[in-house]
Design a binder for these strands. Structure first.
Ligand code: MN
Ligand code: MN
Ligand code: ZN
Ligand code: ZN
Lengths: 128, 128
DNA sequence: TTTATATTTGCAACAGAGTTGCGTTATGAG
DNA sequence: CTCATAACGCAACTCTGTTGCAAATATAAA
C-alpha cells in the first residue's frame, strides 16, 4: 500500500547536509553545497519526501523563501506539528528554530489549526 | 525630501478593493478583480507604496504566497509593527487577521524583532 | 489657467522558485 | 539474481516578483 522510501545517494547526502547545520537552509543553498550530487528537481523531490517522512520541516521566511531544518523537538502525538518560533536574522541571514522558548498562542473558538508558520525577523544575538 | 504620494486612479481602486474585503487578497486575485484598471507591474508598485505608507500590510501565507490586508489595529508607536496572528483556511482559502485575540510571544535574550509573520493554517469556523 | 517637474505608468524583458511529463536508471524485496 | 517500481535527469513550463526606460499624468508653482 504505502510506497517504500528508497535510500538513494541524493537522499543520504541531502539529509546529512541538513542535519549537519545549526541553522535552516534553502533549496538553492543546498543545491550549491551538493556540488552536482543530483539535479535540482531531484533535490526538490527529496526534500518533499523528507518532509512527508517528518525528518525535516519547512520554514517559510518573511520574504516567502522556503528553508528546511531537521525535526527535533516536534510533537508527533496525533499528527506532526511544529509549533515553535523561527528567527530570521536580517544581518547574517541565518534562520534558526527557537525550540527552547515557551510561547502561548491560542486561536478563538472554532478555529482548528493544522500548520503553524511563526517566523520573526530581526537581529540575532551574534549580530546585535 | 520625502516623495509625495500621488493619488492616481490605480492607487484609488486598489486601496478601495483591499479595504472592501473582510479577508486578505493576493496580487493575482487583485489583478483579476481590477479588470484592466492597470498593468500588473503597476499593481505591484502601488501595493509596495501602500505598504510603505502603512495603509495595508503584507501577509505571507504558509505556502509562501503574499496577501494584503488593510491596517487596522496595528501598533504605530515607534515603528509600524503587526504582531497578530493570520489564519489561513485550507477549506475556503480565505486569510483573516485575528486582531481581537491575545497572544504571548517573546524571544530569548538578545534577540531583537522587527517583523512578525505569524500565520496559522487550518479550518475556519465557517468551514468547520 | 498654464507650465514645469517629478512621480507614476505600460511594456518588454528578465530572474528565481517551484512543478510536470516522460523516458531512463537503479533500489531493494522476493 | 530478477524485476517491479521508486527515483532520477532533462527539458519545458508556470507563477511570482523585479528592472530599465520612454511616455503619460498628478500636483505644485508661476
Ligand atoms: Mn523549526
Ligand atoms: Mn493582519
Ligand atoms: Zn545574525
Ligand atoms: Zn474557511
Amino acid at each position: 500500500m504505502s510506497k517504500t522510501s528508497r535510500n538513494t545517494i541524493a537522499r543520504q547526502k541531502i539529509l546529512e547536509l541538513i542535519n549537519s547545520k545549526k541553522t535552516a537552509i534553502s533549496h538553492s543553498s543546498l543545491q550549491e553545497e551538493l556540488e552536482g550530487v543530483c539535479d535540482r528537481v531531484t533535490t526538490y523531490r527529496v526534500l518533499e519526501r523528507l518532509v512527508n517522512e517528518s525528518l525535516i520541516h519547512r520554514i517559510v521566511n518573511v520574504n516567502g523563501v522556503v528553508n528546511y531544518a531537521p525535526c527535533q523537538t516536534c510533537s508527533h502525538k496525533e499528527q506532526h506539528i511544529h509549533q515553535h518560533i523561527h528567527f530570521s536574522c536580517i544581518s547574517c541571514g541565518t534562520i534558526r528554530c527557537i525550540t527552547d522558548h515557551p510561547i502561548a498562542i491560542t486561536l478563538p473558538e472554532n478555529y482548528s489549526a493544522t500548520e503553524y508558520q511563526l517566523t520573526i525577523a530581526g537581529t540575532c544575538p551574534e549580530c546585535l
